[in-house]
């Protein structure tokens, strides 16, 4: 019955895995008065109606991050949660559903490299019976810079004279754009560095990632703004690809109050600019969230898309095949 038993089995094993290691399972709200601004994630907005106190806008969480980080700042120690997340967008397809299940775990004292080992153990120890070997193989650790160089050679681009695509040498948006054009990509005009990066990544890297073992892409470019700590031109963030599909995302969490405050300001401006053009929901962002980082321990957080994990573990290619009630269209 649409992997319902597999899902139940998987969730049970995941809970045992974390319980045995002393993580606290938490449950945080799905409705929030404000969200961490992320310009590229569209939100669902709704209204809380109260005749006496006045109504107010509320938002469905795109991830439980905002609440889980508050708990960590308040001394919860390592925590995990299996929750529903909501992302409003036109992308409905084989690997997207507007409502999806996420496993999010934060390990106090860990950095992102420790989280790789933990996640590898998690996949192996919670694997469903009959889980394909391609899910259980050792992760290949590959930096984003190396991945771009590996997959922009003529074998993949059919272009012989584009030269090397070394992100370290292409830090300027114009240089990267010209390199993308040399690689045969259509770039309509000046755009942000990360937009051009994503064109290259989506055209050459994502479709060619190996499918016989998981790949952990580490060190994402600094230009892709997020709350992962920076290290030179890169950020201490990784994404896990299984069967060529993005399944997990991890940060070494940013802890500097001023950096978080600046992120809120810049990302919120970007979000407002982007969404006011097309009438999308503009959620509130509360920059006082940054204040929790004056007492936030060193910590690494991982988010795993459970519907996608279930897909790869049960050999299904369409997210609808693991949802009891697919999104009505």
């Amino acid at each position: 019955m649409k992997a319902a038993k597999s899902r139940s089995l998987l969730y049970g094993s995941i809970r045992r895995f974390f319980d045995q290691r002393g993580y606290l399972e938490v449950e945080t709200p799905s409705l929030s008065p404000d969200l961490i601004p992320e310009a590229t994630i569209d939100d669902f907005g709704t209204t809380f109606i109260n005749e006496f106190e006045g109504s107010r806008d509320m938002y469905m969480i795109p991830s439980p991050e905002v609440f889980m980080k508050r708990l960590i700042a308040d001394g919860s120690g390592s925590i995990y949660q299996i929750s529903k997340c909501f992302r409003n967008c036109e992308q409905i397809g084989e690997i997207h559903n507007p409502e999806f299940s996420m496993l999010e775990y934060y390990t106090v004292g860990y950095d992102e490299v420790d989280s790789i080992a933990l996640t590898q153990r998690l996949l192996r120890e919670t694997a469903l019976p009959n889980c394909p070997q391609s899910v259980l193989e050792d992760f290949e650790i590959l930096s984003v810079r190396d991945a771009i160089m590996r997959y922009t050679v003529p074998q993949y681009t059919n272009i012989t004279d584009a030269g090397t695509t070394d992100l370290d040498m292409l830090q300027n948006p114009k240089d990267l754009r010209e390199q993308a054009q040399r690689l045969g990509l259509y770039v309509p005009g000046p755009e942000s560095w990360d937009d051009t990066f994503n064109r290259i990544f989506i055209n050459f890297v994502e479709p060619n990632l190996p499918k016989d073992h998981p790949v952990c892409l580490v060190e994402y470019p600094k230009q892709i703004e997020c709350l992962a700590q920076r290290n030179g031109n890169y950020r201490r963030r990784w994404e896990l690809y299984i069967n060529g599909m993005e399944v997990a995302n991890c940060y070494l969490e940013e802890r500097d109050v001023e950096t978080v405050r600046a992120y809120y300001k810049e990302e919120y401006n970007k979000l407002v600019e982007l969404r006011s053009q097309n009438g999308k929901v503009i959620p509130d962002a509360d920059a006082s969230f940054a204040d929790i980082f004056d007492r936030f321990p060193k910590c690494s957080g991982v988010a795993i898309g459970l519907d996608r994990l279930l897909m790869v573990e049960t050999g299904r290619c369409d997210i609808d095949d693991v949802l009891l009630f697919p999104f009505p269209l």
């Binding site: 590229t40 967008c89 992308q91 084989e94 937009d195 994503n198 064109r199 993005e246």
Partner: peptide, 28 residues
């Protein structure tokens, strides 16, 4: 097919076919 890189703008991968030559090309 919609493709959405983690923390990136939305992309769409199109498979296009030329009716006169039958040539199929992919544009993202």
């Amino acid at each position: 097919e919609f493709v959405n890189p983690g923390k990136g703008s939305a992309f769409v991968r199109l498979k296009l076919k030329s009716p006169s030559t039958g040539q199929v090309l992919q544009e993202t």
